[in-house]
Amino acid sequence: MQRSTVTIAGCDLEVHEGGSGAPVLYLHPGGGFRPDPFLAEVSKTRRVIAPSHPGFGRSALPDWIDSVDDVAHIYLELMDHYGIQKTDVIGCSVGGWITMEMATKAPERFGKIALMAPVGVKTGPADKLDIPDIFVMSPADVPKIMFHDPSKFPFDPSKMSDEDLSIHVRNRESLALYVWEPYMHNPKLPHRLHRIKSPALFVRGASDGLVSEAYMQSYAKLLPNAKTMTIPEAGHALQAEQPQAFAKAVLDFIG
C-alpha cells in the first residue's frame, strides 16, 4: 500500500492507500495499522483508505485531541478531503468504536459497516468491566486474549527497529489516552446508535478474551440493522489470526 500524509484540522495523518474500485475506509485496532494480508484481499476489488489514528503510527497527536469523538470528526473531514460522500467501512476494535461515532454523526455517509470485535458501549453491570482492563493485565496474559494460538505471534522487541518499537510504544500510549475513562466506552453512544440504519456486520473471534459473545450481541442489538458472526480459532486480533476467513466474511458482506 502507498503511504502519504494528509493534514486534517491541523493534524498530520499518515494514510495508507491501495487497490481501486469503490472506496472502503479501514480503521485499525488499538495495536495500530499493519498491512495485514486480509487488506490485500480487500484491495483486489476495492480502493482501501487506511489512516493511522492521531497518535498512532506516524500520525501526529495535537494537544487538543484526546478522545475517540475527536478522531471521528477528523475522519469525517478526511472523507471530505478525498471527495468521498459515502463509503463502506471496516472498523476493528477501537477502530470499530470510531466507526460508530462517525456513523451516529452522519449516518447518510455510510453504506455497509463491518465491525471486528468493536468496543465503545457499556451494556453490563456497574461492578464489572465489560472489557477486561488490558492496562493492568499481566504481560504474560495479554497474548492469550489477543490470539487463539499466541505461539504463532511471538513478540520480540529485539527483532524490531527503533522506529517500529517507538511506534508500538506510542500506539499503546495513544490508546490509553483515548480509552482510559470511561474505560473503552462512551456512555452516550447507546442512545445514538439507533440512527445507523445501514446494514452492519459484527464479527468476533471465538477465543476473543476482550470482546465477549454476550457483549457483541448486546452491542449489535443497539443497531436496527445488524447481524453477528463468530469465527473459530481466532482471538481478538481476528484480522491477523484468520485473515482469509475474516476477508471472506467482510467481502461477502460489503460485496
Binding site: F135, P139, V169, E173, A176
Partner: peptide, 16 residues
Amino acid sequence: PQFANPPGYVPVAANV
C-alpha cells in the same frame, strides 16, 4: 510489572 509502568507514564524513548 503492569502496575509499575502504565502507558504514557514515561516518555516513548524511555519505554523503548
